[in-house]
């Protein structure tokens, strides 16, 4: 009884609504590759002819033009976002707490679409330490892990990014030393 609906991998709509999704061109390419049958059904010449609706031609053209304009805008935005994503960096910061004790703070994850809370939990159970999500001074979230586990964290994040197909995001380790107290005169 359940109906299985295919959803577009680009705009997440059912493919017949892709034309309203804002990335029509990419949607079409995706559909042609993944669901050739459906593509035939939706975009063959006959289907397109049949789809001309009861609206007057002028009105339809106007709407079509508007949609195309929106699409261009949306595509540009999507591209910009992607570029932004790829140029971003993830920082694994090692902060000295007390001479030999360190905590690790990971920032810059928010662009990769990762659930920070869940990841913190994963780290906590993986390293058997405390790990939490805290807000930094500039209002961004970061994961703070107790213990000197910078290298392990780095390899884990790199693997995770690879799985997600975000190989271009760089992961960088930095060390932060506490400011030295000025010697009292």
């Amino acid at each position: 009884m359940t109906v299985k609906v295919v959803y577009c991998g680009i705009c997440s709509f059912p493919p017949e609504y892709c034309e309203f999704g804002g990335a029509f061109k990419r949607c079409k390419e995706w559909l042609e590759k993944k669901e050739p049958e459906l593509f035939q059904k939706l975009y063959s010449v006959e289907a397109l002819e049949k789809a001309t609706s009861s609206l007057s031609i002028e009105k339809q053209e106007e709407i079509e033009r508007k949609i195309q304009k929106d699409q261009k805008k949306n595509e540009a935005r999507a591209e910009r976002e992607l570029a932004n994503k790829l140029s971003s960096k993830i920082y694994v910061k090692r902060i000295e707490r007390n001479k030999r004790k360190h905590v690790i703070a990971i920032s810059g994850l928010e662009l990769c679409g990762i659930d920070m809370k869940k990841l913190a939990k994963v780290f906590a159970s993986k390293f058997a330490t405390g790990a939490s999500v805290t807000k930094t001074a500039d209002g961004k979230d970061e994961i703070v892990i107790q213990g000197d586990v910078g290298d392990e964290v780095e390899t884990y994040i790199v693997d995770m990014l690879e799985e997600k197909g975000l190989d271009d995001v760089k992961v960088e380790q930095v060390a932060e030393k506490p400011k030295k107290k000025k010697p009292q005169v």
Binding site: F20, S53, S54, Q60
Partner: peptide, 8 residues
């Protein structure tokens, strides 16, 4: 069901 013009 709505007409095509309304979808947008």
């Amino acid at each position: 069901k709505v007409d095509r013009g309304a979808i947008k």
